[in-house]
């Protein structure tokens, strides 16, 4: 039973990573940039939801929508103001700008909400008890996993069926050719950022529901982990991000339970290193050999 409960908490944590990683991977696929500010958008989503529930007394689901709206606007703004002018620049320049944006968001949050952490009121509480109370599953965990699967399926359908989704795939393949085919590349990138940020908001709410401590740096570590998950699964691939996120969450949960709490991150990163050595483009990533 212990094993099952660790597995479930791992899956729940992994689903949060997967949702964040989906945002990472979409942005990477299309803009070819590591958006280090993504983790901080999660934190903003968490705070917005917290304010909506605690100060304004709105119901949980309204707070999620509020967080999504604010984060979407924020994502598009960040892209337009900071990343768009650097479209032609080297990837390192964009990376440093993303780090600047990350600092900016963290320190703005510090100024607005203070350094003391806030206790997030869970959107859903309660647990489902099975097998004579030997196994208890928090409803939040179940919801997280379900939301993650819905998002994964939704995104896969979106990118394969809709016009915008096809435009995204075209842009990630070859921006120049996509533009020649009449695709508005700038708008496609903005939409990608909007979707990624909305996902980050959802991830923020779910993350804070499971781990109810909210502070300006809440998003950094999950952000790095989700980035790891995206690479683990093969960056740029949507099913890869999903699989990478889930695996990472489960490995972390088991490492905490059976090996060592202190070294849980070490185990996660060690697995990542081994996977990358065996499959240099991640689990589901396409390895493109260089042609001369």
């Amino acid at each position: 039973m212990e094993f099952l409960s660790y597995l479930i908490s791992g899956l729940s944590l992994g689903s949060v990573y997967a949702i964040i990683a989906l945002g990472y991977t979409m942005v990477y696929g299309i803009a070819k940039m590591l958006n280090f500010a993504h983790g901080d958008v999660i934190m903003v989503g968490g705070y917005i939801s917290y304010i909506a529930v605690s100060y304004m007394g709105l119901p949980g689901w309204v707070s999620v929508i509020a967080a999504m709206v604010v984060c979407t606007v924020l994502g598009v703004l960040i892209e337009g103001l900071a990343y768009k002018p650097l479209r032609a620049a080297t990837s390192l320049a964009v990376l440093i700008t993303a780090i600047g944006v990350s600092y900016f968001l963290q320190n703005s949050a510090l100024l607005i909400w203070g350094a003391n952490f806030k206790t997030y009121p869970s959107v859903i509480s309660g647990t489902l008890n099975l097998f004579d109370n030997r196994l208890s599953i928090p409803y939040v965990s179940m919801l997280t996993v379900v939301v993650c699967i819905v998002i994964m399926v939704g995104l896969t359908l979106f990118t394969s069926k809709t016009k915008m989704g096809k435009a995204m795939r075209a842009c990630s393949e070859d921006k120049g050719a996509a533009q020649l085919m009449g695709i508005n590349v700038n708008r496609t990138i903005s939409v990608t950022f909007a979707i990624g940020s909305a996902l980050a908001a959802i991830a923020g709410v779910l993350l804070c529901s499971s781990f109810p401590i909210l502070k300006p740096t809440t998003g950094s570590m999950p952000g790095i982990k989700a980035f790891t998950a995206a690479v683990f699964g093969g960056i740029g691939s949507i099913p890869g991000a999903f699989l990478g996120g889930l695996l990472l969450g489960v490995i972390e949960s088991f490492a905490k339970a059976y090996i060592s709490t202190q070294l849980a991150n070490t185990v996660v990163f060690a697995v990542l290193i081994i996977v990358l050595l065996v499959r240099p483009a991640g689990l589901l990533g396409k390895y493109v050999p260089e042609k001369v």
Binding site: T90, A93, T97, I99, G100, V101, Y103, F104, N107, S108
Partner: peptide, 15 residues
């Protein structure tokens, strides 16, 4: 906050 803004502005102006 100023440090962050300086970083972003410098990157944009130089690139």
């Amino acid at each position: 906050l100023i440090y962050a803004v300086v970083l972003i502005v410098v990157m944009i102006t130089t690139n």
